[in-house]
């Protein structure tokens, strides 16, 4: 989490760029994103998808064929999210799936609540799945056991949810992550993180974005989270690639070294038999698209030729 600029009502930032507020207004007027009726959930147009699909192809190209590729669902086993430590450390971001398992009598109760406009969801029970918080969480159970020599590389893409309701167009509750994940020897995990950060920043720069690396920490919950965040910064475990959307510096990618956290949680061993380390390089596809729209304008066909060639040729 990096420092965010406080929004004013100005149209232009000091450097002449539109403010986030002005950019958002133009973006919504263009129909590239449309409001869904709740904060942080946006309906995406074909133009927006054209951009995110092109960014996905660019991220895949970064992998140079070295990664197994998987596409993951928007829900994840409750047990996996627990083992990943997400429920403990990011309690306020978790999204739970609830289902109806009641009797006819309870169904009647639900209908009465619906008719009365009262809380019908109180009749539901938690399911055995949660909303997926990070695409890479799906990868670690797949790697349980002993890894092959050299570890395992997985490219993973999926819909994610984090309960951070905000009216800002940069903060989506429902968003897409595209990650390059490595699980294996400790030194290789760190190398993967560092190389992935450098290559990711270069990719974003070649797309015409002004992007900078910044040491960061995850938004761990509560007082316990303050210790985790401090530890993460002390370990230089997380970096973000930050680019402006309007005048708001926005994290559009991250490079994370999780050390033995996931290896221990999911009983993953290296070929040599020690607890595996992991790292991931993650791109927020929706935020990269927003940064591109902010940098190059809302008319994609008028983006700089070099950027269009990189994305679509």
């Amino acid at each position: 989490m990096t420092a965010h600029v406080t929004l004013g009502t100005r149209e232009q930032a000091r450097d002449g760029a539109p403010t986030l507020e002005a950019f958002s207004r133009q973006l919504l007027a263009s129909g590239i994103l449309s409001p869904s009726g709740v904060d942080g959930v946006w309906v995406r147009s074909a133009t927006f998808e054209r951009i995110t699909e092109a960014v996905q192809r660019s991220v895949t190209a970064l992998g140079r064929g070295r990664y197994e590729t998987i596409q993951v669902p928007p829900v994840i086993a409750r047990a996996t999210l627990e083992r990943a430590g997400y429920v403990r450390s990011f309690t306020d971001l978790v999204g739970s799936v609830h289902v109806f398992r009641g009797s006819d009598q309870q169904h009647a109760d639900l209908l009465r609540r619906c008719d009365a406009g009262t809380d019908w969801a109180a009749v539901l029970d938690p399911a055995d799945v949660m909303l997926s918080s990070a695409a890479c969480h799906h990868v670690y159970p797949m790697c349980a056991g002993r890894l092959p020599p050299g570890g395992r590389r997985v490219e993973v893409r999926g819909e994610c949810f984090r309960h951070e309701p905000s009216s800002q167009v940069t903060r989506h509750r429902s968003f897409r992550m595209h990650e390059l994940v490595f699980v294996g020897e400790p030194v290789d995990a760190l190398t993967h993180r560092d190389a992935g950060l450098a290559e990711g920043l270069e990719l974003l720069s070649t797309l015409g974005l002004t992007v900078e690396a910044a040491a960061a920490n995850d938004p761990f919950f509560g007082r316990a989270g303050a210790i985790l965040a401090d530890g993460q910064r002390q370990d230089a475990a997380k970096y973000e690639g930050v680019a402006p959307v309007g005048d708001l510096p926005t994290a559009i990618m991250s490079a994370n070294y999780a050390a033995e956290h996931f290896g221990a949680a999911f009983a993953i061993a290296t070929a040599g038999g020690v607890v595996a380390h992991s790292s991931c390089v993650a791109f927020g596809l929706d935020r990269v698209a927003l940064a591109l729209l902010s940098a190059h304008g809302l008319d994609v066909d008028r983006w700089p030729v070099g950027v269009r060639q990189r994305l679509w040729q």
Binding site: R223, A224, A226, I227, G231, Q234
Partner: peptide
């Protein structure tokens, strides 16, 4: 482990570590 120790110390000594102390 750090967090468990922190919470157990708070209970054991009946204190609360303030924000500036919540560091590694």
């Amino acid at each position: 482990g750090n967090i468990s120790v922190m919470l157990a110390l708070e209970e054991s000594f009946n204190v609360e570590f303030p924000e500036p102390m919540l560091r590694r």
